[in-house]
Amino acid sequence: MADMKVNFAGVEFKNPVVAASGTYGYGREYEALYPLSKLGGISVKGTTLHKRDGNPAPRVAETPSGMLNSVGLQNGGVDKFINCEIPNLLTKNIAIIANIAGATVEECAEVAAKLNGTGVHMIELNISCPNVKQGGAAFGTSCENASAVTRAVRNATDLPLMVKLSPNVTDIASIAKAVEAEGADAVSLINTLLGMRIDINSRRPILKNNVGGLSGAAVFPIAVRMVWQVANAVKIPVMGMGGITTWEDGIEMMLAGASAIQVGAAIFKNPFAPVEIADGMNEWLDKNGIKCVSEIVGRVKPW
């Protein structure tokens, strides 16, 4: 058995596989199938200051090798998360990443401040949600906005801070550098790519929100490319995600420069995906005589 432990921005993960925000709730639903402790970590559903209803349904559309979603950050608000979910998660022997979002810089900072001392291990600041009208992707698509919100959250929290980047930009590396300069301890990428599908008979978009975020296997090559570009541009660690479906994808993402990975949409078809990915990666490391998973991070040999 290879050593699957990773130390990511000072946080211990027993393996590098983390359930992606918004695809795994707070973990409760999957405990019927396996203990959460099989995962390295969980990034919980995006939390805002107040309860949000999200967008009207339909909120999902199937696409070739992927899906669009337009959930729109439905959540019960940070206080409910703190009171009803964190105590349960703390008993699960798993790294807890609190994914936070807000319509304004101040809101993001306030949510982060409330999470101080709650026991969560890390904050993932989502500056890339394509499904909300204010904040969300607007923060993640310009260096100035990304810097401003990172600065405010940095000042509000002592927890390791990871900023989740939007792929809906021309130069993701420059955004990564901007948040690194403001004191982010890590970056995660990619969030979903803005997309659209139309029912040709009704001529109506399938999503009630018209547009939504693309994820799943279809986005994997884009995610690998962006992780590679970002990992080469910053010194802080990168958590890579976007379309990871098999253990081979996990290895590939880490070779591209990710120190840990998140698995999202793949879980919907195969709820065991994160567990199978961790096991498969471990076997591959053994077969290749690699003692520790962190040894492969960024070890792609570019032409």
Partner: peptide, 12 residues
């Protein structure tokens, strides 16, 4: 329309 089917993803 559903994705996870178990209450985790909130699309339905």
């Amino acid at each position: 329309r559903m994705a996870c089917g178990v209450g985790a993803c909130l699309v339905c």
